[in-house]
Write a protein that binds this DNA or RNA. Sequence first.
DNA 1: AGGAAGATCTACT
DNA 2: GTAGATCTTCCTA
Length: 196
Amino acid sequence: MIETSKILTGEFYCRDTAKVARELLGKKLIRKTECSGNVLGGIIIETEAYYGETDPASRAYHGEKNYNKVMWSEPGQLFIYNVHQYWMLNIVAHKEGAVGAVLIRAIEPSEGINLMMRNRPVDDIHNLTSGPGKLTLALNINKKFNGRKITDTSASINIYDNKLDFESGSSNRIGVTKDLKEKLRFYIVGNAFLSD
DNA sequence: AGGAAGATCTACT
DNA sequence: GTAGATCTTCCTA
């Protein structure tokens, strides 16, 4: 049973994007299925921060479009974007008046592992959610979640606070063609479910 | 209507 | 470590 009182509130996401990205490590990402109310998810172990029109790797770099406008909107919502044939799961997070979102790159499966394996059959559990495109398939997340709030108890996706002890590291972002010099990827050092 | 780009993944050498 | 598959969206015409 999960305590609803531990859902992270909007204030958590109304801060600098990189700060939110680092602090999302160790938190628990939970997806409730529509029909059965089953629970899927795991611990967030790898994230990346993306900013607005000053960040050449960001979807917001070329200005506000229909598909990315949620990045300008209220923090604490989902931003879902397609790359190749996969959906990327992001959380809108930025200070008042700023633009930005946090990409969830990998989770450590903890809830509903059987159901996730049905969504994305793999031989090795370490391959189940160890990448941004992999985890959206396992959690059955797609474009219809774009713009959904994750701070309400009634939402089908939430992030829960979680007290964990771990060492966090940072590096340059993965897979981007034009990165900034700041290290904007954050991860739990030594975790076996990282994307690389 | 067609082409190009992209924050990926898998399979192969 | 590199190549190829695959899909949504945008840009140009």
